[in-house]
Amino acid sequence: MEFYPLQQPDEIAEREKEDAMGAYLMMFAAVAIGLPLPVINLIASIIYYFINRKKSRFIHFHCAQALLTQIPTTVINWVAVIWGVTILVSDQYEATDIFWAYVVFAGVCTLLYFIVSIIAAYRARQGKMYYFLVFGPWSYQIAYRVRPTDNVQTSEPMNKPPF
């Protein structure tokens, strides 16, 4: 598997660094809006990803990492919300110790996600890579892998010099 070379911090434009940082920071605003329904932040991450992924590989990597990490966090929080609402509205279910343990688990996961996101945003602003466990290498592959389609060149160049 081939990969494009990683740019070094001094090779990355300030605007690129800001856009890469934005992938993590934008999520905080989205979380505040969508706290009771933890899906707004996921939608925001998806939109941000598709708008920015083509700008540069560095931005693509950070957007992908922010989005991929967002997915399990959203699923974990959604389970907590659905479980909680079910307990509230249904006579069949009770708030057991297992439920509260899950709420603690979801809370700690979200907190950890916030912490690593802040670190990643800071590193991105400095033009540095920051790899999350599992999602970091995965995002690196998404952004930096050389795809066969990348090398497709027409045998005859379309534009030719005049002489």
Partner: peptide, 11 residues
């Protein structure tokens, strides 16, 4: 570990 910790805490 987080889940087990949460359970222990709640308990």
């Amino acid at each position: 570990a987080l889940f087990a910790g949460g359970y222990f805490l709640v308990h």
